[in-house]
Design a binder for these strands. Sequence first.
RNA 1: GGGCGUGUAGCUCAAUGGUAGAGCAGUGGCCUUUUAAGCCAUUGGUUCAGGGUUCGAGCCCCUGCACGCUCACCA
Length: 507
Amino acid sequence: MLQDDFSELEKTRLEKIMRMRARGIEPYPTRAQRTATTTEAIRAYEAAEASVNTEPVICTLAGRLRSIRNMGKLIFAHIEDAEGKVQLLFRLDELGPEKMAYFKDDFDLGDFVQASGSMFRTKRGEVTLLVEDFAMLAKALYQLPPDKDEVVDGKVVRHALLSDPETRFRQRYVDLAVNPEVREIFRLRTETVRALRKYLDELGFLEVETPILQPIYGGAAARPFITHHNELDQDLYLRISFELYLKRLLVGGFERVYEIGRDFRNEGVSYKHNPEFTQLEFYMAYADYLSIMEMTEEMISSVAQQVLGTQIIHFEGHEINLTPPWKRIQIREGLLEATGIDINSYETAGELSQALLTKGIQHNPNAPRGKIIGELMEQFLEPNLIQPTFLYDYPRDISPLAKTKPEDSQTVERFEGFIAGMELCNAFTELNDPLEQERRFLEMGRTYAEGNEERHPMDEDFLRALAYGMPPTGGFGMGVDRLVMLLTGQHNIREVILFPPVREVER
RNA sequence: GGGCGUGUAGCUCAAUGGUAGAGCAGUGGCCUUUUAAGCCAUUGGUUCAGGGUUCGAGCCCCUGCACGCUCACCA
């Protein structure tokens, strides 16, 4: 029971609830009568002030009590709603001793209240509601961390709010209630997703939904979450990507499709990895990775423009310019420049490893060729990619769903976009040759031994779909959370996820 | 999973191995009308949990739990 753990403070508030009920006042009434938000009321008053119109601005405001300053015959308070704060003035002359006492005795910080009256401006210049009547809308039993701003030398100094990360994520509602800048991050997140949708919708893309519960997982290199359907008595996987289903839709005749949704990967967490994350994937018939590259620059920069009103973002002390065109580095050339090694001169993992050994470059000598190249990229290329950059032309053996370059069978038409050293997106010219696709799957199967977690099951139905014919297609995937991190300047993915996972703790 | 670090009042934080504190909020008071974001008083603690060392542990040691940073896996 909640009440079993009540502190003295909470018991006091519980007593107030009982006291109110005893007087026939419901502390959790069914309806409210708000006629204006805080900003609407302030704007209306400022407009009335500016005009010759001397009509009073009368309204009923509602919100959470965030501060109370009791001066005896005068009480100043602030209420906060989703838009902001407004000051209330309770005056003895206006309300009478009983109502003044009622407010003093039974209203606490954190309570939701409504107050009606007319707006005016105090001597100190703050637009304020002179309260003629007020009511409890919802009594709070627990106290929120106090909200104290102090203006020192013209700067707002925050006193003791909520900063403990554990509480912030476990009780995100408290974090949100107390930290308006956290609410702003999530507003921007929604704006970002909306802008992405708008961009794709205007290009004639169709937004679709594909299965989250899948009998076979695929489309990425990741370990899945496993679940079970009781009635079918069948194990199912939470999807690790949308890719194989979206491409089936191109077989079905749709030419431009996208999906924004959750992917699930059963792997470690980090500042840029969360076990469930939001992905955008789109597929565009008759496009290739070069046209997708151009589209990516345009999409990201225009989304930033729409959401932030600028294409310049600030992240970890860097000023990053999203304006196209973005820098492009071909992996072979980039590695040649950084290491002096031309990866195309070494056709097998063994040869490449040998060459790296002679140069004293660290790598896993037992990894497949593409993996080794991936290690080199992580070591020599990716950390430097602060400004938006495309790395392109990836090794074939770590890209089983991408089409090889016509002139280079070891390399596929694939790029990844990097910003602030973080991989943001991944795209390629889609492999649409069913026989080649089958060979690639088998190749992956050979590369990874039975039982290796990176060995993926083969999706036979996906091959069957390709065999009916899929047009030449460019495909794209992007971590939406990471884009939001960049746009909001947050350095940890959990700061842009409303309810990040927290370990369950026994009470 | 490995390494490093943290855990003290509702919140933010102090405290040489020697009586557990401050600010905020809470409670009580001041209050005579546009700010008090003030003043006075006061309540509130299993110092994450469990063991150990010691005359004595918030502090030292061990184990566990949670959280943070980081490495690995991965996007």
